[in-house]
Design a protein around this nucleic acid. Structure first.
Length: 738
DNA sequence: CAGAGACTCGAGGAG
DNA sequence: CGAGTCTCTG
């Protein structure tokens, strides 16, 4: 098979450039997956590279699977010998072999975000820190950023001297890490970090993989963090055949440590690196591409790129304003019905994208109302559901007896009379004697000291012992069924017989069938392997484009996908770009939002809708947000206003003028929402959030929130006697009290 | 020890 | 608004 045929000049060049460092700057829709698969096929077929000498890192398991299949069709066979996987799967595979060398054992558990939070709470309790001053989420974020930068707890501690808050956080980090180790568990960041550590302290291990991987390819390189960069660099440093593919304009994971410098500095980091730009887009219409270019050009510090296409002009971009989020959702649903009827479209031609998962609910409601089949990605993942986590808790405790966290989760689920008091007593003993929980309760002598609860603990230990035997002799599916039966978990749900409990039973059945599927199809099925697969699967991995349904997902999840019709909803300041990015002191926070917008726009092949609502209910409060600045960045000739009452020459003139004021006022970020809302000054307020004000009827109160609404401000004030009130500043005549 | 009901408080994206 | 926590009672 000729692997070069049908590729454009640049694509060919990228396939043929097999030696040395290569950076492929691949614009959206420029056929990079095609290039990567053909490149791998070319290596195997034309350059006689053994398949198992190739490592290809993709962003999702789904992409990995697809890549393997496509290589398969190109070269016939041998593709199962190639390492195609995500960073995390590749690292876990490496760690399962050699993690003993750095003080864990191979039965380690992978903790998800919920587990991490539980562990942090334990740390806070132990250190006597208040959760108010140290919110779990932000502590976790701080620790995660350190790990992404390969900074250990010890190093962080050193760097934090003199900074009171950082010192405290470093204590938490230290204890958190100690607990992970004693539970024989890794968090997501550790998976990469510990692999780098393994390579650093055990050069023989690194040497083995360096020799093995003669050719390395990394997709979505713009989203790699420092730890991943280090990993790739070490692996490639022997043969030097490293090909990375990425697009700096699609870097949207800065918040989880992705370092955009990795791609911007590639040529500096790897001497004699060759750079190939893929700039021809095969996906979108001219109009869509022009829109994407118009938005992204407002960012600074990009690599120069000029995306172009030979595709036709296409439909104008439709901008639709609605009164509120319900009307927005209704418009989207009606429009889908209309397009299906008039243009003979299928449901799976449509994608609805949004900035935050919370926005999906209303959209779902209206899709149901219109009887439109849909598939929702993201939100609560299957494996995060309570009933699933409970079962997994059992499996983890069976697999890894050091995992106290999982054991404590299920020790009283279903209820078996081992309550908080008993757990507390055992826990005290655990902490005092530096021993694991499971080791205490399976020691009949130690257990005797716990008085009345001793019998219950003993019978629980016996139950778990039985499961461990079962794990040795049967399949994963059989183990799960045994657990469900012997613990009475399923029976309890069946007795409940509510809508909720029945759904839980359905989920459990789905878990069983996933386990059965695993038992059948895995190369060497094992409990550890199953747990690993479960931990590393992403929601997007299960997205199947064959399924004829409209798909709903966040803009982040949509990366790498394409759809004929795309709706981007919630294009409002404070929603998209997000409130957090606007108030962030980080200069480029809004730029990342803009890249996200670029990603969203370039998902569309034929028609793009941009929707925004005048008001939107957020956490029980109605908010009035201005139209997103990103919409104002579109040239007028590309757009069509939805049901615009009057059709002026430039329908967005007003927005543009206002955004101009805004930019002069404070360009890109820095400005708080309240400040941006105040841009057209008609009324001036002599108070701000937090101030005490006086109202003629309600008396004295505290200003909680000020939102710009139409030509006035909506001020939220809490009065001691009357509670929280929303007042229009123009009418209420509030006076600041000094 | 378990369960029901009151209550507080939070601004995001994900492997 | 809704998830998660706290408090109270049987």
């Amino acid at each position: 098979m000729n692997l070069i045929e049908g590729l454009n000049h640049k694509q060919k060049e990228a396939v043929l450039q097999t030696k040395g460092p290569l950076l492929i700057l691949a614009g959206a829709g420029s056929g990079k997956t095609r290039v990567l698969t053909h490149r791998i096929a070319y290596l195997i077929q034309e350059e006689d590279v053994l398949p198992w000498k190739i490592l290809a890192i993709t962003f999702t398991n789904k992409a990995a699977k697809e890549m393997r299949e496509r290589v398969d069709t190109l070269v016939g066979q041998g593709s199962d010998e190639i390492w195609v996987s995500t960073f995390h799967s590749a690292c876990v595979r490496i760690l399962r072999r050699d993690i003993e060398k750095i003080g864990y054992n191979r039965y380690f558990t992978i903790y998800d975000t919920a587990d991490q939070k539980t562990l942090i709470r334990e740390c806070l309790k132990e250190l006597n820190y208040n959760e108010k001053n140290f919110p779990v989420g932000s502590i976790l974020g701080e620790i995660s950023s350190q790990k992404n930068e390969l900074i250990t707890a010890k190093e962080y501690d050193k760097q934090s001297r003199g900074d009171y808050r950082r010192e405290k956080i470093s204590h938490i980090y230290k204890l958190y890490q100690k607990k992970l180790e004693s539970n024989n568990a890794l968090d997501f960041d550790d998976i990469i970090f510990k692999t780098v550590e393994l390579f650093t302290y055990h050069p023989d291990v690194l040497d083995y993989y360096q020799n093995r991987f003669e050719y390395i390819m990394v997709d979505e390189y713009q989203d790699t963090n420092t730890a991943q960069y280090k990993l790739v660099k070490s692996l490639a440093s022997k043969h030097g055949n490293l090909c990375v593919v990425g697009d700096d304009d699609q870097s949207i994971y800065g918040w989880r440590g992705a370092n955009i410098r990795n791609i911007l500095d590639f040529e500096k980091d790897f001497k004699d690196a060759k750079v190939i730009k893929l700039e021809q887009n095969y996906r979108s219409t001219k109009i869509i591409l022009d829109a994407a270019n118009a938005v992204i050009k407002n960012n600074y510090g990009r690599k120069q790129k000029a995306l172009w296409t030979e595709n036709e002009q296409g439909n104008p971009i439709e901008i639709r304003q609605t009164d509120n989020e319900h009307k927005e959702a209704d418009f989207v649903a009606s429009e889908i019905v209309k397009q299906i009827e008039e243009e003979a479209r299928e449901y799976n031609d449509f994608a609805i994208l949004y900035r935050t998962n919370a926005q999906s609910r209303v959209l779902e409601e209206h899709l149901i109302k219109h009887s439109i089949p849909y598939r929702l990605l993201g939100g609560i993942r299957f494996y995060e559901r309570k009933e699933i986590k409970d079962i997994l808790g059992y499996l983890r405790s069976i697999q890894n007896t050091d995992d106290d966290l999982s054991l404590k989760r299920i020790i009283n689920v279903p209820k078996r009379g081992i309550g908080d008091t008993t757990i507390g007593k055992v826990e005290d003993y655990v902490l005092a004697n530096d021993i694991n929980f499971f080791n205490v309760i399976r020691d009949r002598e130690l257990v005797s000291q716990f008085g009345r609860a001793a019998t219950k603990l003993k019978s629980f230990a016996d139950l778990m012992g039985g499961f461990q035997v079962q794990a040795q002799i049967g399949t994963v599916m059989e183990l799960i069924e045994t657990i469900l039966d012997r613990t009475g978990y399923l029976k309890e749900l069946e007795n409940e017989n509510t809508e909720e409990s029945n759904e839980r039973i359905q989920n459990i059945k789905e878990l069983i069938s996933k386990a059965a599927d695993y038992d059948e199809n895995a190369e060497e099925p094992s409990l550890g392997g199953f747990l690993e697969e479960v931990s590393l699967v992403a929601d997007i991995d299960n997205y199947n484009e064959e399924n004829n349904a409209v798909v709903l997902m966040t803009l982040h999840s949509a990366k790498g996908l394409e759809f004929p019709y795309v709706f981007i909803t919630g294009l409002e300041e404070g929603v998209f770009p997000s409130y957090m990015s606007i108030v962030s002191e980080k200069e480029d926070a809004v730029e990342e939002e803009r890249r996200l917008c670029y990603v969203g726009i370039t998902r569309a092949k034929e028609k793009l809708y941009l929707c925004h609502a005048k008001s939107r209910m957020l956490r029980g409060l109605t908010q009035y947000n201005r139209l997103s600045r990103f919409v104002g960045e579109l040239p007028k000739e590309l757009i069509k206003m939805g049901n615009s009452p009057k059709r002026s020459a430039d329908p967005l003139a007003g927005i543009r003028a206002r955004n101009k004021v805004l930019e002069n006022y404070k360009p890109y970020g820095g400005a708080s929402l309240n400040e941006t809302s105040a841009a057209p000054k008609k009324i001036s307020l002599d108070y701000e959030c937090g101030d005490i004000v006086k109202h003629i009827k309600f008396g004295v109160g505290t200003v909680e929130d000020i939102t710009y609404a139409g030509a006035d401000y909506e001020v939220t004030v809490t009065f001691p006697k009357f509670g929280q009130k929303k007042l229009m500043a123009g009418l209420a005549k509030l006076k600041a009290v000094k």
